[in-house]
C-alpha cells in the first residue's frame, strides 16, 4: 500500500528523495564525462602546484590518521587506507546506511618528481593535506657565466 512506504519512515527526508538520487547519479555521470569532477573514486583528491613543489588534499572524514599509508616515489604519490564504519553502540539498528566500510588506494601522478623525504602530512577536520617538495635534481639551477 502506498502509505506503508516512505511516508511513514521518520527518517525519510523528502518525498522526492528517490527522484533527487536519480538526478544526482546522472549529474555525477555527466560531471565525470566532462572531466571536471571524477565521480566514484575515494577519497576525492585535489592537487595544487607551487614554485617549489606541490600540495594534495583528500576528503576522508572519520578515518584514523594512523591507518593512512602515504608513499611517494618519483612523480607518483599513493594513498592507502581503510575506513571502517562502526555503529555508535552495540545492538544499534541501522535505519539509514549511506556510509560504508571502504578499502582505498589512490595513486596520483604529478607533473614532476618529488622528494619523498620532504613530505609533510596533516589530518584535520576529516581532510588529509600532504605537502611535497620538488626533487632536488629537478629544481632550477642557476648557471654562472664565466668570462671567456
Amino acid at each position: 500500500m502506498l502509505w506503508n512506504t516512505r511516508f511513514t519512515d521518520p527518517w525519510n527526508d523528502d518525498l522526492w528523495s528517490t527522484v533527487r538520487g536519480l538526478r544526482r547519479a546522472f549529474d555525477d555521470l555527466g560531471d565525470a564525462m566532462r572531466g571536471n569532477v571524477r565521480a566514484g573514486e575515494y577519497p576525492p583528491i585535489n592537487v595544487w602546484s607551487r614554485d617549489d613543489g606541490c600540495a594534495l588534499s583528500a576528503e576522508m572524514p572519520g578515518i584514523d590518521p594512523a591507518s593512512i599509508d602515504i608513499s611517494a616515489a618519483g612523480d607518483t604519490v599513493t594513498l592507502r587506507g581503510r575506513r571502517t564504519v562502526l555503529p555508535p553502540v552495540d545492538n544499534a539498528q541501522c535505519l539509514r546506511a549511506e556510509r560504508a566500510d571502504i578499502d582505498f588506494t589512490r595513486t596520483v601522478q604529478l607533473p614532476f618528481p618529488v622528494d619523498a623525504g620532504s613530505a609533510v602530512a596533516q589530518y584535520r577536520q576529516g581532510v588529509l593535506s600532504v605537502s611535497l617538495s620538488i626533487a632536488s635534481e629537478q629544481k632550477p639551477r642557476r648557471i654562472a657565466v664565466a668570462n671567456a
Partner: peptide, 22 residues
C-alpha cells in the same frame, strides 16, 4: 552530507560527514 542513522531502545544516532568544517 552523507549520513547514517541508527536506533537503539534508548535513543537515535545521526552520523553525518562534514569534511573541512569547523
Amino acid at each position: 552530507p552523507v549520513t547514517n542513522v541508527y536506533e537503539t531502545a534508548e535513543r537515535f544516532h545521526v552520523v553525518a560527514e562534514l569534511p573541512g568544517v569547523d
